[in-house]
Amino acid sequence: METQLTMWAWQALYLFEALVLSTSIGMERQAKHKDAGTRTHALVGVGAALFVIIGEYGFMNVLSTNVKIDPSRIAAQIVSGISFIGAGIVFTQRSHVHGLTTAASIWMTAAIGTACGAGMFVPALVCTILYFIAVRLLPFLVRLVVPDFSSDDILRLQYRDGQGILRSILSVCTNHDISVEGFSTRKSDDMDNEPSQRGHIVSANLEIRGRDSKALISDLSSIDGVISVTRINNID
């Protein structure tokens, strides 16, 4: 009985580690306002860990000298099964693929959960750290070392309505060899604006592809009628 309690304690620890590590990845995705956030990643990580534990310990009562199991088969099924969730996140809009990074993060979360279920604490922790290096530190280093590296961004602009400013914005993007993959606009009802400007300010999100250049934002900001320009990196 004592041996069984010890085994249950270790299994609970495996599941708890999977919850902590997968939740940290989900929080990063949710901070970027992705559909697959904290709950999705936590469930994927803990579920993968539980599948591995079931594969290793779930059939001990039927084992005998003539019955053998292969726990690695469970891991193989996790790899193929998680693809269904990842495929549901990826979509194409205006010839641009969205959701690849989030789908990859779910796939990686399943791998981390599998490692936790197998009791591989250190590889699971290292893999989580490497994830944050890849999605947080690496883009910054790339932009620092290669400032003109081609990238996908969203530009969020505010400008005054009824002055043909959008045409000027698109013209400036063209001059900087920037491809505008799509854009959306809406009338801003921001209460921070003066009462006379409310309803006359447009907020626009421009999905752009091209070389990262601070000069583009500078030129857009200098357009008469443009109130603000903000860049949101890594739209995926």
Rank of each mutant, 00 (worst) to 15 (best):
G182H: 12
A9T: 01
A124T: 06
E28M: 08
P195N: 15
I74Y: 09
A115H: 02
N233L: 12
A104V: 05
L130D: 14
T92E: 00
D177K: 10
G26K: 04
H33Q: 15
F121M: 06
D189S: 13
S22G: 14
T38G: 01
G162Y: 14
K68E: 10
E56A: 10
H33R: 15
I178F: 03
V146W: 15
F51K: 02
L5G: 00
G26Y: 13
E181G: 04
G26M: 08
G199Y: 08
F183A: 08
I227S: 04
A42G: 13
T40G: 05
Y14T: 01
D152L: 09
R209Q: 13
I235W: 08
E181T: 05
L13C: 06
T23E: 06
V226S: 03
V180I: 11
S203L: 07
P71Q: 09
V229K: 06
L138H: 05
S83L: 08
M60V: 07
A104G: 00
S22E: 12
A76D: 12
V145F: 04
T230M: 10
F121N: 02
D219A: 04
I223G: 11
I89S: 04
V145T: 14
A115D: 05
G225I: 13
G182D: 12
L21R: 02
K68N: 12
